[in-house]
Structure formats: C-alpha cells, structure tokens
C-alpha cells in the first residue's frame, strides 16, 4: 500500500496551496508538462493535477492546488505531515522542449504553476522566453519570482488592475505581436476561456500555439476514455495523446460542455461540505494511520 507523505504544505495565494510530497519514483521520471492523479481516501475520486516541479535527488514533487470542488477543498485542508492515499504518475506526454527561438509562455491563475516547469525547460534549452502571468487580482498572482527567474521578460496583468497593469493576458500578447516581436511559439495554460482567447489571437498570425487541457479524467492511464477531447473532428485522449494539444485544432466548446457534465453532482458534493471539512480531514487522517499500521509504509 503506497502512501505518500506531505513534507510541506503552505498557501501561496488565497485558496491556492503548494504541497511538497515524497514520491521518489514519480520525481525521478517527471518531465515538464506531466501530471499526477491522486486520491485522498477510500471514498475519494481521482483527480488530475499538474506537477509544478520535482526534485529527483530529494525524491519529491510539488503540486499547486486551487480549491474548486470537494476533493481540492479537502486536499487544501491537509498540512505538513499528512499522508495522501494514492498518487500515480507522471502521466501524459511531456511538453515538447526544443530550441524554437522566442517562446511566449502564458499562465493564467493557478495555470501559472503548470506553465512554470515548461518555461524553465524552454529557457534552459536556449529559447528566449517571454512570460505573461495573469490573475484576477494581486493576491492571486502566483510564482512571480520563479517565473521571472526563467524568463527573459515577465509581463503581469490583473483583471482588476490591482497589480502592475489592468487587462488580460491576451492584451499583452496582442501588444507583443503588434510591436513586431517575432514569436515562434506560444504555450498557454489556464482557464479554458483564456486558452481559447489566446488561440483566437494567434490563429491568423499562424503562430504555433500549445494549450494544456484539463478534461474530466478518471484513470489517466489510457483505459477509460473519459478524457476525450475533440481535436479537429477526431476524438483524442488527454491522458495519452495530451495533455498538450495544438490550440488551433481544439474544439473548446465541446471541452466546456463536457466539463459541465457533472455540475449538479459537484454542487451536491460540495453542499454542507464547508462545515464538515475538518471532520472529514480527520477521518481521512485516521483511515491512513490505520492503513500505515497494517503493513503499509511510506514509499
């Protein structure tokens, strides 16, 4: 029974927590762009989360989790020393890392944490990296320092103008394109409307644009087919064909529609949960303690 230990857990923005988790096998194999699937307890669902970074020497991976549904709320109540029942990965194809020239890396909200490792790898490969980080407001701008370290230029926008500049990431992207900056490739990771907007901006200029998709996923290992996305008019699977796809071929409407499939059930799952969250966490702690006692061990 593999159980994964949380070595560090700290909020980096309201509702966004960063976890450092002991997972040596995953840390060793992780490449930028890949994700893990985790499950917190016996009754829990499996959710995919992108790896923010890994340290193969220490055997750790980092994930940044935004509270959205029941599982992410529960996970974000976890603290240093807690254990996670199941983590499997690294899943998905790694990002393509080559010397493309100038690459614009766009991170929207918590998507910044997912864009970060790819930006770092692109920089290391010798690309000129221009990063655009967008968030709703100042407090939700994450990984600014880390992104600055791996970028030749870092641009920040906030929807409400509470930090740096009011506007959307696409405004900055348009400005770059209009200023005559040669852009060889764009990577955009964030909310679906943002990724779609980026695709629309780069489509006519024929700039190769990559987005990391987040469809509903269950096993994540190329079996169930739940994560199918419509690419041109063909079904592809985010877990084995993705998660990164050519933004200009993605049918975003179908992605939005399919991601809304369980909205009612998700609402029901969250009902009353806010008040029970600590009780639930404590029962999960107890469950894992028992598991570890019966021959389980930290892997």
């Amino acid at each position: 029974m593999p159980v994964f230990k949380v070595l560090q857990a700290a909020f980096i923005a309201p509702g966004i927590k960063r976890f450092v988790i002991e997972a040596p096998r995953i840390a060793r194999k992780h490449r930028p762009g890949q994700f893990v699937i985790l499950r917190l307890c016996e009754q829990g669902e499996r959710i995919p989360l992108t790896i923010e970074r890994s340290d193969s020497a220490k055997g750790t991976i980092n994930i940044c989790v935004q509270s959205a549904g029941k599982t992410t709320h529960l996970l974000n109540s976890f603290e240093t020393g807690d254990r996670i029942l199941d983590i499997v990965g690294p899943l998905g194809k790694p990002s393509e890392i080559e010397k493309f020239g100038t690459v614009v890396v766009i991170g929207g909200g918590v998507g910044t944490a997912m864009a970060y490792p790819t930006a770092a790898a692109l920089k290391k490969e010798g690309n000129r990296v221009i990063s655009i980080v967008g968030a709703r407001n100042k407090e939700l701008v994450i990984l600014e320092r880390e992104m600055a370290e791996v970028s030749d230029t870092l641009l920040v926008t906030t929807d409400d103008g509470s930090y740096v500049e009011k506007g959307f990431v696409t405004d900055k992207l348009r400005q770059l394109m209009q200023s005559g900056t040669r852009i060889d490739r764009v990577l955009a990771v964030g909310p679906i409307p943002m990724m779609k907007a980026v695709a629309d901006v780069t489509r006519e200029a024929h700039i190769r644009t990559i987005v990391s998709l987040n469809p509903i996923m269950i096993d994540g290992t190329g079996m169930c087919g739940g994560c199918r996305v419509l690419i041109d008019s063909k079904s592809e699977f985010a877990c084995v064909d993705g998660p990164e796809f050519d933004a200009h071929r993605v049918n975003f409407e179908v992605l939005v529609q399919r991601n809304a499939m369980y909205r009612e059930a998700e609402r029901r799952s969250m009902e009353d949960f806010d008040t029970e969250i600590e009780a639930k966490r404590d029962s999960v702690r107890k469950e894992l303690k028992q598991l570890c006692a019966v021959g389980g061990g930290v892997r």
Binding site: Q43, G44, E45, R46, K70, T71, I218, D219, M223, C224, G225, G226, R228, L230, S235, N251, V254, Q257, R258, A260, M261, Y262, A265, E266, R268, S269
Partner: peptide, 30 residues
Amino acid sequence: EHLNGVYSANEFLTRINLMHAYEFPRYDEP
C-alpha cells in the same frame, strides 16, 4: 458522439465499479 450523455463502456463501468459511482454521494465519483 461528443454529446454529454454519450459514454464509452470503459468510462461508464469504471465510474460504477472502480469508483463506486452507484454509491454516490457516499463515494465522490458521480
């Protein structure tokens, strides 16, 4: 085939069998 409500059997059965969707909301998977 991409409409909501069209499932693969693998997904439909995985939700029910592996993830216990038939015991929702005691189990999380819907």
